[in-house]
Design a protein around this nucleic acid. Structure first.
Lengths: 147, 147
DNA sequence: TATTGTTATACTCTATAACTATA
DNA sequence: TATAGTTATAGAGTATAACAATA
């Protein structure tokens, strides 16, 4: 009844497993007519942060197979959100980059899912809570890498 | 160059979208021979927290369709981790509850995925970081509900 | 008529395997 | 022989629609 301070890793693991799954499912449900899917949003944002790179490299960062990333990127390319530049030095490589249109989508809240999430955050969370969530995002990424 | 303190909801939304997706994908990848799948783990943990209840109610909490929850619970039942009690007062309702075996799985780290996550947390994160992650889990749940 | 749960079917996301082209 | 990328196929996790039983 006294020792309640200690944070048990097992407990945190369980809580994260459940809450991350829940949030992710909920994000998927947002109706998206003509909008980006979850992996598309993620890949586009990631490509923007990483800068021009190959599909394989992106796949490694996002922890999915190169084939899956290739399929996702193909859709983004068809929509004109990413462009492909063949590497002149190595005929096998194709370097991807975010186009101006893609940047526009990323920067101007054209992504319905992110916009909706942002709205929920603004409406229902305190500045203190927002900053907690903000601080934890990189921890989640690090955790994903180390699991 | 001076105003870097403010936390932008849009930014947090983007960061969460990406990090949650990444962690979730990573969790899925853990090889699970004869182990629980992600939705099974989640449903079992949720049922334990919620106490005996119906499949529909659980589905609502977990934000999936009753049909999907029914399928997940059927597997858990087949493994003897949850039990079904027909409601004597209402012939349509079936009340689910975690069995002793199910409790054992939940309590004794028999779930490979949670165990692995817990190990990564213990090994690579400070007590301060663990407590940050712990504090954020309920925020993520609240966010999932309000999106 | 409304509600609980089941069965049937299909779509999305991801994986593995097999192939082509270049190095 | 090794690497970047593509194509084909399959499995997990969802969803929606249609149905049966009970209220």
């Amino acid at each position: 009844m006294v020792e309640q301070v200690r944070v048990d890793a097992e407990e945190v693991a369980g809580a994260l497993l459940v809450s991350v799954g829940l949030l992710r499912r909920r994000l998927r449900q947002v109706p998206v007519e003509g909008e980006l899917t979850l992996p598309q949003s993620s890949a586009l944002a990631r490509l923007d942060r990483a800068g021009p790179t190959t599909a394989s490299a992106l796949a490694k960062i996002e922890q999915i197979s190169p084939q899956s990333m290739g399929a996702t990127l193909a859709v983004l390319e068809a929509r004109g959100l990413v462009g492909r530049q063949p590497d002149p030095a190595d005929g096998r490589r194709v370097v991807l980059s975010v186009t101006d249109t893609g940047l526009d989508v990323l920067r101007h809240r054209r992504d319905a899912r992110t916009a909706r999430l942002a709205r929920a955050l603004s409406a229902g969370f305190s500045v203190e809570e927002l900053s907690q969530l903000n601080a934890v995002a990189p921890l989640l990424e690090r955790l994903a890498q180390s699991v």
